[in-house]
Design a protein around this nucleic acid. Structure first.
Length: 445
RNA sequence: CGGAGCGUAGCGCAGCCUGGUAGCGCACCUGCUUCGGGAGCAGGGGGUCGGAGGUUCGAAUCCUCUCGCUCCGACCA
C-alpha cells in the first residue's frame, strides 16, 4: 500500500477524551473513530489489525477441532424467556421492538441461540462431541463505556459452545479451549495468564479468565510471577488426547494466579516472597463449564447409548477480539507509539523514502515494494512528499515492527537500512538482503 | 445508576465572570525556500459557538429545558 493513496488520518495531538495509552494511540494512528459512547468505526488501519486478530482466532479454533458458523446479532426475546435470562439480564441488554411490536434484542452473547440450533438438529450421542463457535458483534449497554475499544458497548467477540455427553467429556472441551487460547494469545505476542475466576451471570462453577498483565487493567491480580515465563511454544498438541491436553492445563494453572474475585490471601502468602506479585490485568478471554444450565430448561437432550434421553453438558468460551487490540497496545508500546508484534501487525514492514522525487531513491523504493509483494508481503510505502522526520514519526506512531529506510546517502553505497521498531536497532544492507531478511522474519506467519 | 465536569473549525484550546456580531496553535490549500527525526516565511479556505425556548435594541456570553460526551464510584469479553 502506498501511503499517498491510503486513508490514514493520523493526529499529532492527543485527543482530550482518551485516558489510556491504547485509546490515545488508536485515535492518533487513525485506527478508530468514535461514533457514540462505546461505539466505534474501524478505520482502515484498525480494521486490518482487527481482521488479522480474527484470523488468528479462527485458525486456532479450527486447529482445536472447533467448527465455525455465524449467528445473527439480533435475536428474538422468546429464546431468552425460555432460559429465564430475558428478565435476569437487566439493563445491559439492548431491547428492541420490531414493526410488529415483537420483542427483540441485540445479542450480548449466544448461549440460547446456539442451544436452539443444537436441539433442533442433534439428537444422538453419536453426534457428540461438538463445539461450535462464531465471531460476531455483540452489544452490552454498559453503564459506563470507557477506554476506547477496551470497554466498548459494541464489541467483536469470539464465542464458542461445546456440547458433550457427560461431565468428563465437557471438561475435556474446557481444557481444549484453554490450550487453544494459550496458543492464540502467544501468536499475538501476548502473555495471557489463565486465572481462576468467579462465574458471572452466565453461570457455572468451573471457569478461568485470561489476563494480560498491564497496569491500566481493570482487574487486580495476584500471582506467582513464575507463571509469566510459561510458554506453549511450538510443541505439537493432539487436541483429542485428553491426558495430553489436561497436562498442559495443569502446567499453566498450578502456580497461583487469581483475580481479586477469587483471591485467597492465606494461599498467596505461601508463595516465596520473591515470586509473589500483585498487579493489574486486562481480561481478554474466559472459559466456562456450566453443566446442563441451558440444556435442561431449553430441552437440549440427546439419546445416550442406553437409549435414555439426557441433557447435554455445555460450556461457553469467549475471546474479546476487539478488546485485544487495546490489550496488545497496552502491553506493547513506547512514548513514540505502538509496537505491533509481528503476528498482528497491519503491515509487515514500512518503507520510508527519505527523498521523494530523487530518482534513485524512488526507484529503490519501488523495487523493494515489488520484491516484498512478490514474497507475499504487503509493505506500507511512505511515498508522501514529506520530510524525513514526519515520515519517521508516522511510522513510529503506527508501530510497524520493521522499517526499511531508503535515502540517497545510503544508496550511494548500495545499502538501505533495516530498523526494528522494538529495539530501535538499525542495520545497513543491500535492498535484496533487506527483502530476504524481512521474508525470513515472517516465514510461517 | 449516584457524584463531578465539558460541548466554540478535523484535533487541542482561548473568549463567557463584566452581553456589542468569533480568535489562537496544529491540520488543510497556494507560492517560495528548505529537506536523514513532526521545517521557515508569506498568503488563503473552513465555524447554524450541541439543540430548543426565553430575557435584551443586541446572546458563544445571562436564564430555562433538552441532547450528547467525559471523568470518579458500583458491574462486565
Amino acid at each position: 500500500m502506498r501511503l499517498s493513496r491510503y486513508f490514514l488520518p493520523v493526529l499529532k495531538e492527543n485527543p482530550a477524551d482518551a485516558q489510556i495509552v491504547s485509546h490515545r494511540y488508536m485515535l492518533r494512528a487513525g485506527m478508530i473513530r468514535q461514533q457514540a459512547a462505546g461505539i466505534y468505526s474501524w478505520l482502515p488501519l484498525g480494521f486490518r489489525v482487527l481482521r488479522r486478530i480474527e484470523e488468528i482466532v479462527h485458525q486456532e479454533q479450527v486447529r482445536a477441532g472447533h467448527i465455525p458458523l455465524l449467528m445473527p446479532t439480533l435475536q428474538p426475546a422468546d429464546l431468552w424467556r425460555e432460559s429465564g435470562r430475558y428478565d435476569d439480564y437487566g439493563q445491559e441488554m439492548l431491547r428492541i421492538k420490531d414493526r410488529h411490536e415483537r420483542d427483540m434484542l441485540y445479542g450480548p452473547t449466544n448461549e440460547e441461540m446456539i442451544t436452539d440450533i443444537f436441539r433442533s438438529h442433534v439428537s444422538s450421542y453419536k453426534d457428540l462431541p461438538l463445539t461450535l463457535y462464531h465471531i460476531q458483534w455483540k452489544f452490552r449497554d454498559e453503564l459506563r463505556p470507557r477506554f476506547g475499544v477496551m470497554r466498548g458497548r459494541e464489541f467483536l467477540m469470539k464465542d464458542g459452545y461445546n456440547f458433550d455427553i457427560d461431565k468428563d467429556a465437557a471438561l475435556h472441551a474446557y481444557n481444549r479451549h484453554m490450550v487453544s487460547y494459550l496458543r492464540t494469545y502467544e501468536r499475538m505476542g501476548l502473555t495471557a495468564i489463565p486465572m481462576r475466576a468467579a462465574s458471572g451471570p452466565i453461570g457455572g462453577d468451573n471457569t478461568h479468565e485470561f489476563l494480560v498483565l498491564a497496569n491500566t487493567g481493570e482487574s487486580e491480580v495476584f500471582y506467582d510471577d513464575r507463571v509469566t515465563s510459561l510458554k506453549l511454544g511450538a510443541r505439537d498438541i493432539d487436541y483429542d488426547d485428553r491426558s495430553q491436553v489436561a497436562e498442559v492445563c495443569k502446567e499453566f494453572t498450578t502456580l497461583y494466579a487469581r483475580t481479586d474475585e477469587t483471591h485467597d490471601q492465606a494461599v498467596f502468602d505461601q508463595i516465596p516472597e520473591a515470586h509473589r506479585k500483585v498487579g493489574r490485568g486486562i481480561e481478554v478471554g474466559q472459559i466456562f463449564y456450566f453443566s446442563t444450565k441451558y440444556s435442561e430448561p431449553m430441552g437440549a437432550v440427546v439419546v445416550n447409548d442406553k437409549g435414555e434421553r439426557v441433557p447435554v453438558h455445555m460450556g461457553s468460551h469467549g475471546i474479546g477480539v476487539s478488546r485485544l487490540l487495546g490489550a496488545i497496545i497496552e502491553a506493547s508500546h513506547d512514548d513514540k507509539g505502538i509496537i505491533w508484534p509481528e503476528g498482528v501487525t497491519p503491515f509487515p514492514v514500512g518503507i520510508v523514502n527519505l527523498k521523494q522525487g530523487d530518482s534513485a531513491a524512488d526507484a529503490a523504493c519501488e523495487g523493494l515494494y515489488k520484491a516484498l509483494k512478490a514474497k507475499g508481503l504487503e509493505a506500507l510505502y511512505d511515498d508522501r512528499d514529506e520530510r524525513a522526520g514526519a515520515k519517521f514519526a508516522t511510522m513510529d506512531l503506527i508501530g510497524l515492527p520493521w522499517r526499511i529506510t531508503v535515502g540517497p546517502r545510503g544508496l550511494a553505497n548500495g545499502v538501505v537500512e533495516l530498523t526494528s521498531r522494538r529495539t530501535g536497532e538499525s542495520e545497513e544492507m543491500s535492498p535484496e538482503a533487506a527483502v530476504d531478511r524481512v521474508a525470513q522474519i515472517y516465514a510461517g506467519r
